[in-house]
Design a protein around this nucleic acid. Structure first.
Lengths: 192, 192
DNA sequence: AAAATATGAGACATATTTGTATTATATGTC
DNA sequence: GACATATAATACAAATATGTCTCATATTTT
């Protein structure tokens, strides 16, 4: 954790630029990232000696941001549908960051720090779903990993529609929560 | 439409390799694609003078494949939930190709051929959803574009779980269809 | 204010890629 | 079988990127 203001400024700029550039092209060049950050390339290498270390630092930060967003759910002791709906709300503003993690995961996962954050979060979410199934709120016929994946995919859809079609966050949140609860059918289909 | 066997062989190899390589890295080099195809780089340029033309040819092919998969639904005159479930079934084996289109869309959409195919398919799917809403099968509180997007992103999630977690296609199809019909809740939530 | 140090710019050698062209050869067409 | 042509391999000039290093300067720390 640097205290020197110059270092904090440079690394902040690098992490922000990395996210923006790599979100659009995970294979973007180091030169491009440095340019976008308004930081010298040599400086970039001083802080992050390899491309991988930069990506991993960004992954740790992203996971940390996401973890912070999920913390209120955990602290409230929510689980089941309430937790799922809470996730949609908490993560919608972070959907791009969530998607970004998926894109760079093969590089990020090699870092131990990344794994620790990830495993913690997976454990939380998995537990919320499992408890929801035990409590009879979430359909036990659905795999836990599938439920988690559905939430992820809805967030992705919503963020995409917001970005590409100019939908409002509020509208998308409502559509997600409705769909998560009842699917797309107009009449509730009897759960068999 | 070439008749010379050599041309057919080369272009087939190039389209296949392009799909495989660009699916993993939409910015992969032309050299890498040519290598993967086992085709000379000069040959690649002879058939596809620019990167964009290669990507656009691949997009047209991908849309054509997807369109073929959706045709039975159209020919049966399905709409509403039946069409949605049919889409899940038809497109699950093609989920990667669908996702690929999204990744290269900014390049692909510049081609008129691509747009024609795309608009046709969007029109079909949009109509199936709209008719479903009018017929009272699909929740009219949900935006058409949202419904389409949910189907798309679920397919992607399912294909990812198949690839990364070794889930079976049959299992994923079942999970998708159940989720689409009733959401993730165990008890059908009253549609208000 | 002095000392420490982070930084940008530039340089260097190397690697990779691009777009284009040529030529000998293999292969398809007629 | 004769002819046409598609092709791979190679070469070229140019562009881009990488990883590393040096140095003058700006900025922060002490």
């Amino acid at each position: 954790m640097p205290t020197d203001l110059r270092i904090k400024k440079s690394t902040r700029a690098l992490l922000d630029a990395s996210f923006a550039v790599l979100l659009n092209n995970p294979h973007a060049s180091i030169s491009e990232i440095a340019n976008q950050a308004g930081v010298g390339r040599a400086t970039l290498y001083r802080h992050y000696p390899t491309r991988e270390s930069l990506i991993q630092a960004l992954a740790v930060e992203s996971l940390s941001i996401i973890g912070d967003a999920l913390l209120p759910i955990r602290e409230r002791g929510d689980s089941g549908m309430k937790a799922m709906q809470g996730m949609l709300q908490a993560l919608l503003p972070l959907a791009q960051r969530y998607h970004f993690l998926q894109m760079i995961w093969t590089v990020a996962e090699l870092d131990r720090d990344v794994w620790q954050h990830y495993e913690t979060q997976v454990a939380w979410v998995t537990e919320w779903v499992s408890q929801g199934q035990i409590a009879g709120e979430i359909n036990p016929a659905l795999d836990v990993s599938w439920v988690v994946s559905v939430v992820d995919s809805m967030l992705y859809s919503a963020s995409w529609l917001i970005a590409q079609e100019g939908m409002s966050q509020q509208k998308m949140l409502q559509q997600m929560q409705l769909t998560l609860a009842t699917g797309i059918a107009a009449q509730a289909v009897t759960a068999d």
